[in-house]
């Protein structure tokens, strides 16, 4: 892989706190190595800002290996930037070239209010899980792990849904700010397992109700969420959620 350095123009959303009005601000960074990750480029910029006596840009990040789901930048019109099946922290500067202008915005959704600069509040996702995204089993009640065989394809499909990292890119990408991909990943994960069976109906009903309460939009199957999901969660999970919902709604007393 050929290494190179580049100079870039950055247009970054700055907003002091939730109650203030934000605006874009232009920055220039120089001698950025193509080996750097996108967040390391932001580290360089922040060091520069601190040196110049400006406030550094606040952004969410933690594991920097694409699994914790904390990072959340909307880069040049796409959540997590230009690469497919990727998170911002795993985006590397190889994706850009010298002289590029990069626009960086926070996730935009009423249900994800901006905390500061590029940081948003995603606690709505926690509350959706609280509404039923679990299997009610107390510690110490479990039977042997092999007591209940689960067909490999079912287990694999359940795992594919459970891979969701809860980053919120699906909401950010959706024109309706819908959280259906997130929600359906959890519903699918648990509905596909025999352990999830007893609470199958109440789970989907309650989680959808909570999602509506949090102020997410409804799904119109545009597929933008699937296209941007770092873990490539499939849109078919949304269809499964719909089925679960209809079934639960029709049969629930």
């Amino acid at each position: 892989m050929e290494h190179y350095t580049m100079n870039l123009n950055l247009k970054v959303w700055r907003q002091k706190n939730n109650s203030s009005k934000g605006a874009f601000k232009l920055y220039r960074v120089e001698n950025i190595s193509s080996e750097m990750s996108f967040l390391e480029m932001f580290d360089v910029l922040n060091e520069q800002l601190i040196h110049d006596g400006e406030e550094p840009i606040a952004f969410d990040h933690d594991c920097r290996e694409g699994i914790c789901g904390t990072c959340s930048m909307y880069i040049n019109g796409k959540p997590h930037g230009p690469w497919q099946a990727n998170t911002t922290c795993q985006l590397h500067m190889r994706a850009f070239k010298d002289g590029d202008t990069i626009v960086v915005e926070p996730w935009r959704a009423g249900a994800f209010p901006v905390i500061k600069d590029l940081m948003v509040d995603r606690s709505a996702f926690d509350r959706i899980i609280q509404a039923g995204g679990y299997i009610s089993v107390n510690t110490g009640n479990a039977v042997d792990g092999n007591a209940l065989p689960i067909a490999k394809d079912k287990a694999d499909e359940s795992f594919a849904a459970a891979m969701c990292i809860g980053c919120g890119a699906c909401v950010a990408a959706c024109k309706n700010s819908s959280a259906m991909l997130f929600l359906s990943a959890k519903v699918s994960h648990l509905a596909l397992l025999p352990q999830g069976e007893p609470e199958r109906k109440s789970r989907v009903m309650n989680m959808v109700a909570q999602m509506d309460k949090e102020g997410f939009g409804s799904c119109t199957n545009t597929g933008a969420c699937e296209a941007t999901c770092p873990k490539e969660i499939s849109l078919t999970h949304i269809a499964r959620l719909n089925k679960e919902y209809i079934f639960a709604g029709v049969t629930e007393k």
Partner: peptide, 21 residues
Amino acid sequence: AQNKAKRPVGYAVNYGNRGSK
């Protein structure tokens, strides 16, 4: 109308055709 209202502040650059038709 409801879905539009779920995003009070819009994006400067849109995802557009890269993510959906």
